[in-house]
Amino acid sequence: MLFRLCSLIGACLLVGCGEPACESTPDVCDFAVFQKATPVTAQEAVQAIGRFQDPIVRTAAVNHWLRLNPKSTIEDGNLLCSLLTGTEVGNCQRRVSAAHLRR
């Protein structure tokens, strides 16, 4: 067990394989970076999120930014919401513009 643990740590240090999903789904890997270094302005966020091809990652990134910026303007919020599709758009717009959720 100890041997396996050591080999696992050692191997990961060597090849950086702690995030194996990176190979098959690069957006998943890039999302981890996005989480750690979230863009400050809405415009920067839109640019960064726009690069995600995977709609699930894109939605997660939008939600992540909105969670970190609850006092963003309605315009900025709607800018982020416009990156979404389907019923997610309406739910997002309500979240960023409804007066009772902005207090």
Binding site: S7, L8, C12, L14, P20, S24, Q35
Partner: peptide, 30 residues
């Protein structure tokens, strides 16, 4: 190296409630 890299950390221990979401299970936001 192969054995170590086959290790995939996941959120929680069970499979996601929706199997199609398995590729995102390692990150709770995803």
């Amino acid at each position: 190296l192969l054995a170590a890299c086959a290790y995939v950390p996941t959120f929680g221990t069970a499979e996601p409630a929706i199997p199609a979401c398995a590729p995102y299970a390692a990150n709770v936001e995803l």
